[in-house]
Design a protein around this nucleic acid. Structure first.
Lengths: 269, 269
DNA sequence: CGCGAGCTTGATGCCGATCAATGCATGTGG
DNA sequence: CCACATGCATTGATCGGCATCAAGCTCGCG
């Protein structure tokens, strides 16, 4: 997690030759508000990143029947909220989300950022209610995966069952990585790890490894990393001064990836 | 997570009337070294806390066939290690474990403490290798649950499938709670939350709500909470001075539970 | 009895939080 | 098109919580 070889790398491996398919993904369907229309996993260009990884034709076609609807979520809107009854998982099709938990006393914590092909809502299974908020950070579309039907189908298809379990387990592993980050890294290390993780995931989706646009505010990054927004900002500036990055507001260009990597690994506090 | 109503409370609810059964659990089988002998979920007094929650008779008997062996792990020994091939999950039967992840550069982080009825090894599903170490903090016994057989069986029994998914999801929710703790709480709040969480889980197992023996060192607590051992020690002392606890090395008696709770909720940094 | 692992406690220093002011981009209405 | 408001980002000055370094202490065990 949060290092060079982590879950995004697994995805990258799984992608193998089919990387080209991913390129098409940048067309962003601005404010198309038509809810619930037909789509198909079997023809989705995210199928090598998403739930259907590794499924054969017959399984895929059954999945198509399951994942029958999409939902459009405008920037700033919530896909679900803590306390909402849990019914479906959601696969991000386009756009970008954050999830955050909050405690009674108003503290809140961003627990993750999700991009195309990643699943949202796994937390809801445990008590049939969502336990966090999922908020779109840009206009987004998700595929709705009715959970009980997914359970039914995964009883029929071993591969789907296995893939689903892997996705849940991967989330657990990812969380452990974040705990390591929050528990033992200093501010610079955290931000470096965060940036590397982001770019890896973007790269697995066919985007540039070196330049990216942050979809979240400094405050959201800070919340995720256990830092205050000022510290995030200062650290960006520091990285820029040191020639690691070029920072223009939310546009980031990574100049010295190896340098960032070294920051994460080296200097163990 | 880490508050009054959390996943341990769910367990507590599920326990409902059967709390009495739990009492018998304190007999600790010191250094019984005989590996692999027959046991049965259907007659295990942990069945209301463990994987079998909510299963009917027929399902239970099939589970018995699956969970055929136990393994004894001496204090300080590892049940599995990061990098080990993943084959089985483990249910703690007696004893106490910690799990920890570590990064290349030697940093490591305790990601959890597991007691009777809790599952170990879920991280391994994602890449067919374990990604953390599981170490017994006292002489312990675990039930070995061969994973591929669990998948097979959960394709047959909806309830088992559902229960398994809930357990994975609960782990994700728990992790989010830890992230909240690590990301936004101060030392006192962290330790208070930790103690309350521990006692709740112990209470759900029929132990006293107010007095407990810590199985882990100050350093391990510190690693889990993102603090140094000195800070943990100081905070214990402070709690004692304030009349919240009585601390004698690893023996803790909680004097003012409400006070601890208030610490966690109130004073939002 | 004496060793050592683990715990406590004190003194000091640093990293990141906090407080506060300014800068910059986007958008809105006059 | 400009004036102004608003949200976000940057930067500086100061402060405090926790880490760090450094002794002692306690208790179990060979």
């Amino acid at each position: 997690m949060f290092r060079t070889r982590d879950s995004s790398d697994d995805i990258a491996q799984e992608l193998a030759g089919s990387r080209a398919i991913m390129r098409a993904m940048s067309e962003s369907p601005n404010r198309v508000r038509c809810d619930t229309f037909k789509v198909a996993c079997s023809s989705c260009n995210l199928r090598e990143l998403c739930l259907p990884v590794g499924l054969g034709r017959p399984d895929l076609e059954r999945l198509d029947a399951l994942v029958a609807t999409r939902r459009t979520v405008g920037r700033g809107d919530t896909l679900f909220r803590s306390g909402d009854p849990f019914q479906s998982l959601y696969a991000v099709r386009t756009g970008f989300f954050k999830t955050c938990v909050s405690s009674e006393d108003g503290r809140d914590q961003v627990t993750g950022f999700q991009m195309a092909g990643e699943l949202l809502g796994l937390d809801g299974i445990s008590a049939d209610r969502h336990t966090c908020d999922a908020v779109a950070l840009e206009d987004s579309q998700v595929c709705v995966i009715p959970y009980s039907q997914l359970e039914d189908l995964s009883r029929e298809f071993t591969d789907l069952q296995h893939q689903f379990h892997k996705i849940m387990s991967r989330e657990i592993v990812r969380d452990h990585g974040v705990m390591l980050l929050l528990g033992s890294m200093r501010a610079e290390e955290r931000l470096a790890a965060f940036l590397l993780n982001l770019t890896q995931r973007l790269q697995a989706r066919g985007f540039s490894a070196s330049s990216l646009i942050l979809r979240m505010t400094r405050e959201e990054i800070g919340s995720y990393l256990g830092l205050k927004l000022e510290t995030v900002s200062r650290t960006f500036s520091k990285f820029q001064d040191e020639g690691l990055l070029e920072v223009k507001q939310r546009q980031i260009r990574i100049i010295d990836q190896a340098g960032l990597q070294q920051l994460v690994n080296g200097t163990p506090s």
